[in-house]
């Protein structure tokens, strides 16, 4: 499938700040299931190129605006060709070893309830792949998708206790549960083509679990499926904060407001 994406993020500072530093991880991954066709990132209209590829295999750009900055507008847009690989991240190059993804973070600490949930999934038997599917099913059934029920600081344990949340919470609980079983797991940020008109936001997040012999496999408890051709993978990390595609740091004291607009749509492909 060919998907068109436009993702605009605007930071406004009142009063204008002396400087803004930004770290962007807004470049869709390249692997067998995904090829960015043309992709353009800009900051206040100026084109942005990645400086390096980090250990996670994600391209990173660091930028600076100096001297009375009232606004920083980041636009990432382009087309990405996707194929359904049943969630398997085949053909992706990265330096970090999966072992790093056993590390706990404050947001992904497994409490007794998460460990219990993970044990239940583990007890379902079969391969790691099928037990990971069971974990995804369980998380999907225990945490209802309720936008606004949680915020960016909500931990996995809090989300499971509340029984509701958004994609970030689903991913965090899968990650916490998988790690408690000794399976490396990580957080993936990306875009998603929602099929119901106005039904879902287009930025999305899911979990990846390391499955022996297969490698990294994506699990999305929000839709209770593994990523398909409707998914665009952008970057990953130990949790939502670590994987954040945009991070800004303003110099000076100012009220900061954030405005985000995302659109994902299939591109009509004509036969040539």
């Amino acid at each position: 499938m060919l998907l068109a994406v436009r993702h605009r993020t605007t930071y406004r500072y009142d009063p204008a700040v002396a400087g803004v530093a930004m770290r962007l991880k807004l470049f869709p991954s390249r692997f067998d299931g995904q090829k960015p066709r043309r992709w353009r990132v800009s900051l206040n209209g100026a084109a942005v190129k990645p400086d390096f590829t980090n250990g996670w295999g994600d391209e990173v750009a660091t930028l600076f605006l100096r001297g009375g900055v009232p606004e920083a507008e980041v636009i990432a847009e382009g087309e990405v060709e996707t194929h359904d690989l049943a969630g398997v991240l085949r053909g992706f190059r990265e330096a970090l070893k999966p072992g790093v993804c056993l590390r706990e973070t404050p947001r992904t600490r497994a409490d007794a309830a998460i460990a219990e949930l993970a044990r239940e999934a583990d007890a379902s038997g079969g391969s790691v792949l099928s037990r990971a599917h069971a974990l995804q099913d369980l998380v999907s059934s225990r945490i209802a998708y309720v936008p606004g029920a949680t915020d960016h600081g909500t931990t996995a344990a809090q989300a499971l206790a509340a029984g509701k949340g958004v994609c970030q919470d689903h991913a965090h609980v899968i990650i916490a549960g998988a790690r408690s079983l000794g399976w490396p797991a990580r957080y993936v940020a990306g875009y998603y083509l929602a099929h119901i008109e106005g039904g879902d936001v287009a930025t999305h997040a899911w979990a990846e679990v390391w499955v022996p012999d297969l490698g990294w496999v994506g699990f999305d408890a929000s839709n209770d499926i593994c990523p398909t051709a409707d998914y665009i993978r952008v970057c990953s990390g130990l949790d939502a904060a670590d994987a954040a595609p945009l991070r800004g740091h303003a110099e000076g004291v100012a009220a900061e407001t954030l405005d985000v607009e995302v659109g994902v749509a299939p591109v009509a492909q004509t036969q040539q």
Binding site: G55, W56, A95, K97, V100, L102, R103
Partner: peptide, 15 residues
């Protein structure tokens, strides 16, 4: 485990 699960190991330093 001793290395990768240690919070002093910084993935940002890879490479």
């Amino acid at each position: 485990d001793l290395v990768y699960r240690n919070s002093a190991f910084l993935p940002e330093m890879m490479g």
